[in-house]
Write a protein that binds this DNA or RNA. Sequence first.
DNA 1: CAGGGTGTTTCAGTGTGTGAAATCTGCCCA
DNA 2: TGGGCAGATTTCACACACTGAAACACCCTG
Lengths: 237, 237
Amino acid sequence: MCEICPIERYLLRDMPSDSTLHASRSAERVLDLLQHVGERAPTALTEAAEATGIPVSTALRHLRVLADRGWVERRTDGSYQLGPTATRLAPADTGGATRDRLVAVAEPHLRGLAMDTGESCYLAVRSGDEALYLSTAEGTRTIRHVGWVGRSVPIAGTAVGEALTANDREADPFSNVGAAESDVGAVTAPIWFGDHVVAAISILGPASRFDRDSIRVLSPLAHRTASTIESALHAAT
Amino acid sequence: MCEICPIERYLLRDMPSDSTLHASRSAERVLDLLQHVGERAPTALTEAAEATGIPVSTALRHLRVLADRGWVERRTDGSYQLGPTATRLAPADTGGATRDRLVAVAEPHLRGLAMDTGESCYLAVRSGDEALYLSTAEGTRTIRHVGWVGRSVPIAGTAVGEALTANDREADPFSNVGAAESDVGAVTAPIWFGDHVVAAISILGPASRFDRDSIRVLSPLAHRTASTIESALHAAT
DNA sequence: CAGGGTGTTTCAGTGTGTGAAATCTGCCCA
DNA sequence: TGGGCAGATTTCACACACTGAAACACCCTG
């Protein structure tokens, strides 16, 4: 998970004025522990304490508060993982929309892109350290990519993963190529909402149809469609 | 969202001994605010304060900590919604598995159930206040249910929603019928992991094939397949 | 224009939160 | 079988962090 370092966090903060309404240290720490568990589950007490810089007894205290409220669960081997309260948080970085709405908003644009390119186009979201394909518009060519809706691929080492973890709007639009399988060609583009990525679209097809020349055509189309979906999301919010 | 009341929470807690390692009040409160935002987004400051019983200035302090760390975001109208840190928490009530693993574990059992029943069988998970269909095994009959993977239906008023919000393992196994569309028949069963529901399976088909007699046959099959998937999940953990 | 509601800041006072040290527990290995 | 080690848990003295009512600011509406 690309983590906001403290300097970035400071710059991106909610910009409160110079009030003396100081943050509560406990509140910060319990959230740091929760985030650590989310990223590194299953995690032992001493591992979590070390990772967050919190003394072990203090970390134990806060992990107990998290466990009491169902945010984490203690496994039988003593390590911690996320609990039901955490996993039930509704996805909100789709602009408050549910994934279903995201799918609905994106669907005509995916169809248009599939018509324009002839290739199958997918909508993917991030789910933990994987990219989950939510919906597709199939391409028009006889040989086409099918069947990845409901499937996940790793974030690491895939173009869609790279798009979903983008943190720079000005990134090279020709960098997001390459798919999880060697005979599959991919061009992807992130869909931004505000200052973070909520989804990505992927154009997928046989690798042989994704040479340098076709990527030069497909990539701008993908990014343009992503921008159109972004606008549609804002309008729908 | 079925919420654990304070008495239940106490009974279900991590059973620490009678130590004097007291919980931090701030830690408890910031988590209560986060959970409120998760359930009631978008929510105003004073609404969140009232709902959680926290004085407004204290609620503001803690919401700023949440916002600084990306757990919540302040909207332009001043209300709060969940932020990227919250929505990126990996789903863990699938026994630590990603949804992809859940899909993988369930897939042969869904195929078996589709073969046994002839009807299309789906795997669904909860996503906020909707049920999201992750995968399917299509039925063998010429007239069959298709195409709901990637789709969501409301939790409220649907059989799959009822299965996903089950909190009683001994519930009437013939209660989970009825689908989001009137010409669709549904039989569902919750998949438990520990003491909460992580997914549900649905048998879907034309409503005309889901009369009382066929439900008496399908429902036990659905529940048995759910139990088999539960066992497979435990083995895979 | 006044009232009401929401959001923000201030600051005096109270008791909470801290964390090193001590202790406990379980496991491994000679 | 006993010692060592690592992780987890408890204790408790102490320092200052956290609190929240009150005051203030801002915006909207009748």
